[in-house]
Nucleic acid binder design. Structure first.
Length: 191
DNA sequence: AACAACCTCAACCGCATCAGA
DNA sequence: GTCTGATGCGGTTGAGGTTGT
């Protein structure tokens, strides 16, 4: 059920995007919005599948993308969120304004996983323990996921926060910094 | 200078889930 | 309730860059 049925997938452009392709894609999205990616690809005259267009937009062209080094605070937040949520990069990215799930995933795989492994070797604890079950079944962090997270033992046993509130994305703009501050306070025991 | 090993990150792939007909 | 196309997600790959020998 892929979205790239016509033309055959082999006929789609692959590989790095050109500046011209970026420009065309951005123009069409500005007019039609960031949805119906297959249509967008057609309108823009891009020989790309919708999926590829979406990925390019989400990870590179979207406004407010923050590029450049991950700050210490962001890194700390990623570590804490990963401890709590596991490999649910989109959820983690949702708590880091301007960062994409792909970027965080890459950063984790290239930097933090090693760091964590080193810490685990020192402390004799594996991050995989207890967190694996979360993976697919709770993927989108809908209601059941919240319950699983609270019972999966992936957060510190002494943490005491309201998970429903934790995942409340309403009033995001005004709550962002407060949320980060509170989360950092809550998980003092990490590291 | 040349080569190998390692690292980074953009992009692709397969699968699950959602949403509309 | 079922089907089908669209969307979103996490895992993985590979090209290009960097560092070490």
């Amino acid at each position: 059920m892929e979205d790239n049925v016509l033309p055959n997938r082999s006929e789609f452009n692959k590989g790095p995007w050109t500046a011209e392709e970026d420009r065309k894609l951005a123009e069409v999205i500005a007019v039609h919005g960031a949805r119906r990616w297959k249509t967008i690809a057609n309108i823009a005259g891009l020989n790309r599948c919708g999926k590829s267009c979406r990925l390019r937009w989400m990870n590179y062209l979207r406004p407010n993308i923050k590029r450049g080094n991950i700050t210490d605070q962001e890194e700390d937040l990623i570590l804490r969120l990963h401890k709590l949520l596991g490999n649910r990069w989109s959820l983690i990215a949702g708590r880091l304004p301007g960062r994409t799930d792909n970027e965080i995933k890459n950063y984790w795989n290239s930097h933090l996983s090693k760091k964590v492994n080193q810490n685990e070797k020192q402390s004799g604890v594996s991050a995989r323990q207890g967190c694996k079950a979360q993976k697919r079944s709770v993927k989108n962090a809908k209601e059941p996921a919240r319950e699983e997270i609270t019972s999966a033992g992936c957060e510190d046993s002494n943490t005491d926060f309201n998970v429903d509130e934790f995942f409340d994305f309403s009033n995001e703009d005004t709550r962002n910094l407060e949320w980060v501050r509170r989360f950092l306070e809550v998980d003092e025991g990490f590291n």
